[in-house]
Computed example of a mutant assay.
Amino acid sequence: MQKIAIQSMLFRNEIIEQGIFEVFSKFPTIGSKYVELSMVALTKENIAGLKKAREEFGIELIALSGAMQSKEKSKFNPSLIDEYDIIVETAKEFGVEHIRLGSFPGNIGGTRAQIEDDCKRTNEYVEKLKEHGLKLHLHNHHREFMKLDGKYVIDIVKDLCPDAGFEIDVFWVQRGGETPQEYIKNFANRLDLLHLKDYKIAHPRLDKVDEEFKAKNPDLFNDVVRFAEIGEGNLHIKEIIEVSKTLGTKYLIIEQDQTYGADKYDCYKKSIDNLAKMGYTN
Results as ranks from 00 to 15, higher is better:
residue 104 F to A: 12
residue 122 T to N: 04
residue 93 E to P: 06
residue 102 G to Q: 09
residue 64 L to R: 00
residue 120 K to T: 12
residue 34 Y to F: 05
residue 40 V to T: 14
residue 49 G to A: 12
residue 96 V to A: 00
residue 55 E to W: 06
residue 44 K to Q: 12
residue 101 L to N: 11
residue 78 P to S: 13
residue 96 V to F: 02
residue 102 G to S: 14
residue 36 E to L: 11
residue 83 E to G: 03
residue 76 F to S: 14
residue 90 T to N: 05
residue 44 K to M: 00
residue 77 N to M: 13
residue 92 K to N: 08
residue 35 V to G: 02
residue 67 A to T: 14
residue 113 A to Q: 14
residue 119 C to G: 02
residue 78 P to E: 14
residue 92 K to W: 04
residue 65 S to I: 02
residue 116 E to D: 05
residue 61 L to N: 04
residue 38 S to V: 02
residue 70 S to K: 13
residue 96 V to R: 03
residue 84 Y to V: 10
residue 98 H to I: 15
residue 120 K to V: 00
residue 58 G to F: 10
residue 101 L to C: 13
residue 114 Q to A: 15
residue 69 Q to M: 13
residue 54 R to E: 15
residue 54 R to I: 00
residue 61 L to P: 02
residue 113 A to T: 12
residue 100 R to T: 08
residue 67 A to Q: 04
residue 47 I to C: 08
residue 76 F to D: 14
residue 87 I to P: 00
residue 118 D to G: 01
residue 64 L to I: 01
residue 35 V to C: 03
residue 112 R to L: 13
residue 74 S to I: 12
residue 88 V to K: 01
residue 68 M to P: 10
residue 86 I to D: 09
residue 98 H to A: 05
residue 65 S to M: 03
residue 60 E to N: 13
residue 108 I to R: 14
residue 34 Y to S: 06
residue 81 I to C: 09
residue 94 F to Q: 06
residue 67 A to Y: 08
residue 105 P to I: 04
residue 52 K to W: 09
residue 88 V to E: 07
residue 74 S to P: 15
residue 83 E to S: 06
residue 93 E to C: 01
residue 103 S to Q: 12
residue 118 D to H: 06
residue 35 V to T: 02
residue 35 V to R: 01
residue 84 Y to S: 09
residue 89 E to H: 08
residue 80 L to D: 06
residue 81 I to F: 15
residue 115 I to R: 08
residue 64 L to S: 02
residue 98 H to R: 08
residue 104 F to D: 06
residue 64 L to F: 04
residue 84 Y to G: 09
residue 111 T to A: 04
residue 112 R to K: 13
residue 121 R to T: 09
residue 36 E to Y: 01
residue 91 A to I: 06
residue 38 S to K: 05
residue 42 L to G: 03
residue 57 F to Q: 07
residue 90 T to E: 03
residue 59 I to M: 05
residue 72 E to W: 11
residue 94 F to R: 05
residue 91 A to L: 02
residue 114 Q to F: 07
residue 121 R to M: 12
residue 121 R to F: 09
residue 69 Q to A: 12
residue 87 I to N: 03
residue 43 T to E: 09
residue 41 A to F: 00
residue 79 S to T: 10
residue 101 L to I: 13
residue 41 A to H: 10
residue 51 K to F: 07
residue 116 E to S: 07
residue 35 V to D: 00
residue 71 K to G: 14
residue 47 I to R: 11
residue 51 K to P: 00
residue 38 S to R: 10
residue 84 Y to P: 06
residue 83 E to R: 08
residue 82 D to R: 11
residue 94 F to M: 07
residue 45 E to K: 15
residue 111 T to E: 07
residue 77 N to V: 12
residue 77 N to P: 11
residue 85 D to P: 01
residue 38 S to H: 10
residue 95 G to I: 09
residue 67 A to V: 00
residue 50 L to S: 06
residue 122 T to W: 01
residue 54 R to Y: 06
residue 48 A to R: 08
residue 89 E to M: 07
residue 121 R to A: 10
residue 75 K to Q: 15
residue 101 L to E: 11
residue 72 E to K: 15
residue 86 I to P: 01
residue 118 D to V: 00
residue 79 S to D: 13
residue 62 I to W: 05
residue 77 N to L: 10
residue 55 E to A: 15
residue 58 G to H: 04
